[in-house]
Design a protein around this nucleic acid. Structure first.
Lengths: 345, 345
DNA sequence: CCTGCTTGTGTGACCGGTCACATTCATGCC
DNA sequence: GGCATGAATGTGACCGGTCACACAAGCAGG
């Protein structure tokens, strides 16, 4: 509110200086909390600031100081559970560090498109966080020009080619391994897997963990069924699996996929977990409320986002040592959708 | 990639000028596509730009020109279906207008907290879009200082107090009305309602539409049950409703709420839609894949987001006339979760 | 041939801050 | 008393662009 009635335009540092009868530099000192300003002067300046409704321009500050106090997050998606919660975590951490968060959505994995997106993000000036869970993200991470501080949220850490990269991740491999072991230990002969689209064909962490558990148990290794991110993909995959009576246990790359699979099984008249056990991934909010409730692997995406920002902050302020690290250990939450196979029941 | 091997620091307009042997102003003309530059000169400048890897600083551009080409979206949530898809729509539209999208999450509805958030967003310089579906958002919308271009995504348009405000919304009232009529026409005596937290106690559009349909049909009007945004709240509400055998039809403020309600009904041994019909709201991706699949009201949140940006763009460039408007008409999607009451079956 | 307009280009100021350095004045110490 | 020292404040340049205007050259018309 402007009590005096008319605010022509936002007041600048020099306007304040004039009003307080000091130099602009003194005003700068006051707003930056510099110690050597006489208390009486400070008072005067603060009064002028208040009176003129002065607010320091973030743009000018960024230009002059070189520090922009902003992060741009590059991601191929913002609506799915995992992505959205990572964003949430980044925002939380950013806000408490007085940073601003911008978002750039990678619409296509096409090389030139991604390059353009990365450039736009880089032009913004601040640091970058790239969610590299998919081909578009992976490519974006590669495409970031040198010299720009960047942190990657990745599926699997690379085998550190040239030193440590500022990356964060969760241990999906172990998570999938545990989930698969859970099903095997219930007595299932083997476990089928409906995969999320992965960042790179070869190193899908979840697939690897699943496979490792099967191999270790000497179980047969079915071909993973390729899914999408949403329930529709799960439904399609589920229909195929439902047609095969030998299938008694299915691990899904995420909870939406699991939902679609469960629906397909239901439509095919197969009971859960009576005929087929289903396990999801991520423990999205709805997993616990499905009928049957869904056994899943809980992931701390928000914490992952916070960690990503923390790492970036360290890089930018080059205070903290930059070390990549996984965040929390995923935790298996057993619910109604998984049980022993019928023959063993 | 830098083929020459070493990029000291990002080249400025004057570096390019020196390399091309022209004045910085000519470089400025080239990058802005000004017509009166001799083709040969333009070539030379472009070559220099390419060679030095010059990219115009968005910060400096914003400061000097006064236009920042950025939107900041203020919202209390980014993970729920509706909010996330609005963001998605805004981003799409923003990207195609070469705008940048920043997000500020309103953590609390507390007045001073909201004010601080709004200030931070305003300091960024660009336009503002406020999602005012909840108390925090509504307050934020009020708190935006005059002179800053802002568009509100609101639940219900105000009865235009002082002229038209730049707002967008969907017609939730009609949507809830239709959904309620659907249930009544199936033969239900009345319809219970589990509400989402609304922006203001009095003018919840969904509640109003529901109530209008009941009144029109001469049905009794049960007290709406207050829910939250997530399935947990629906579960709590559902337990109460499940305990009342007279309840045969429930309308839920969103699909997550409906999920929780369905779970509670199931736990209480009540069949859907045999004993109780359930209708959701928003038609989230999982609605179609639940068992039973959920009757819901489809909302075009992405389109709403795009419209919001379009309106803001019009305000900022003051080209298009600024008129508030609802976007699409919500559409009822009937699925398995709603049917005639048992007595009528 | 001079005026007048267009095309192509350069100069200086400015956007709203920060930074490095200069200056003034009051002390403290020898 | 003279001088180094630190506190308090001011000055000019600069960050990387844009804007308003000046200016030179080319070509038309009178």
């Amino acid at each position: 509110m402007n009590v005096t009635g008319h605010t022509s335009r936002t007041a600048s540092i020099r306007d304040v200086a004039a009003a307080a009868n000091v130099s602009y530099q003194t005003v700068s000192r006051v707003i930056n909390g510099h110690p050597s300003v006489k208390p009486s002067t400070r008072e005067r300046v603060l009064a002028a600031i208040e009176e003129l409704g002065f607010r320091r321009s973030a743009t000018a500050h960024a230009l002059a100081s070189g520090r922009s106090r902003s992060v741009t997050v590059l991601t191929a998606n913002i609506t799915h559970h995992g992505y959205a919660n990572i964003l949430q975590g980044i925002e939380e951490a950013a806000r408490s560090a007085s940073y601003t968060m911008a978002i750039g959505v990678l619409e296509s994995a096409d090389e030139t498109a991604v390059r353009a997106d990365v450039q736009r993000a880089a032009d913004a000036g601040g640091g970058l966080i790239v969610i590299a869970y998919d081909p578009a993200g992976v490519r974006a991470l590669q495409e970031v020009p040198a010299g720009i501080p960047v942190v990657g949220v990745v599926e699997t850490p690379a085998r550190t080619p040239g030193g440590d990269l500022p990356w964060v991740w969760t241990d999906d491999r172990v998570a999938a391994y545990e989930a698969t072991r859970h099903l095997l230990s219930l007595g299932h002969e083997t476990v089928h897997y409906v995969a999320i689209p992965s960042s790179t064909r070869r190193t899908a962490a979840r697939t690897a963990g699943w496979r490792a558990a099967l191999r270790e148990a000497g179980a047969t290794e079915p071909r993973p069924v390729q899914g999408t991110w949403g329930p529709a993909g799960g439904h399609t995959a589920g229909r195929k699996l439902a047609a095969d009576p030998s299938v008694t246990a299915i691990l899904c790359g995420n909870d939406d996929l699991a939902l679609g699979v469960m629906r397909a099984l239901h439509e095919a008249g197969r009971g859960i977990p009576g005929d087929v056990s289903v396990v999801g991934f991520d423990d999205a909010p709805h997993a616990a409320y499905l009928t049957p409730s869904l056994t899943s692997v809980r992931q701390d995406f928000t914490g992952l986002g916070r960690a990503a920002f923390g790492l970036l902050h360290g890089v930018v302020e080059q205070s903290a040592p930059v070390a990549p690290h996984p965040v929390s250990v995923p935790e298996l939450v057993v619910r109604e959708s998984s049980g022993p196979p019928q023959s063993a029941a």
